[in-house]
Design a protein around this nucleic acid. Structure first.
Lengths: 144, 144
DNA sequence: GTAGTTTTGGTTGTGTACAATTAAATTGAT
DNA sequence: ATCAATTTAATTGTACACAACCAAAACTAC
């Protein structure tokens, strides 16, 4: 039998997995300064763009499920970054809204993307290509 | 202040992070059939190619540290897939070697890459491009 | 309007990940 | 030879991730 397909070098998934972790790790020192983890940071990015979102919408946007989000959001609530309120329109939904403190944090986060960008060794063209290929792989899920 | 760089849509890291998780998730049903997790699977891939490796080499290859590998390898040892032996040449090193059972598992894993490949919506050309861009990002770490 | 289905969050259990620290073994400079 | 520095695993503590399951609310036919 031919086992070439099982060689690490022939995997697409592995560099994807490794690269994701390595890049997330680059965020660590910068995020630590403002008291966020990476997962909390992407939650905040959604909230900075939309003052209010449901847990459901957050999960769809970030590809995270309630088992990850519920404890994360509760912790962020105790840190005073956001508030969790059950929707009066639909009691099943929980609405996440930014607090003033959460909103203020955006100023401190604003220079992080630039710092990360400068330590990724790709040209702008390459970044665009990588970006669109990644979304192409992710894309099929939208069609669900 | 301009916060465009903080928009989720303008992040490269986020699709990388999301895509990695989504693709790893695709492996789940196939890996479950042969009793492996994704992390265990990539460890096995290294061992199928090299009957023996040290924990250090495994960590360098897979971008994982001992905090992840030590408990993982101990569990795989109890499952009979591999054996952990302290090197007699260098007592600091632990050598991981495949058992017969671990070796046999390769036959059952052999068709997994094909099954995954067929549900990634990229052309061969695109896969090659994505692959090389990911390794380009990872590459700088080799230069450490 | 009510039973059956779907949607939405929450909970539990398992399995990573990694930073930080520790301890033992090895190496290297004197 | 010896001691300081380095290397290697292991340990500890914190934080995700997600599958599987559960319960309550909302929706859908009839």
């Amino acid at each position: 039998m031919n086992y070439d397909a099982l060689k690490l070098k022939n995997q697409l998934c592995f560099p994807l997995y490794a690269c994701s972790k390595e890049v997330v790790r680059k965020y660590h020192p910068y995020l630590e300064e403002i008291g966020l983890t990476y997962t909390q940071y992407i939650v905040m990015m959604v909230l900075w763009e939309n003052q209010e979102v449901t847990v459901k919408a957050l999960g769809d946007t970030l590809y995270l499920d309630s088992g990850t989000l519920t404890p994360l959001l509760k912790k962020m609530e105790t840190q005073g970054l956001l508030v969790r309120t059950r929707s009066s329109v639909d009691e099943r939904s929980v609405i996440i809204s930014l607090t003033e403190k959460g909103y203020q944090l955006r100023d401190q986060a604003a220079d992080i993307p630039g710092k990360i960008g400068s330590c990724i060794p790709l040209s702008e063209e390459e970044v665009r290509t990588l970006y669109s290929l990644l979304y192409k792989v992710l894309g099929q899920h939208d069609a669900q």
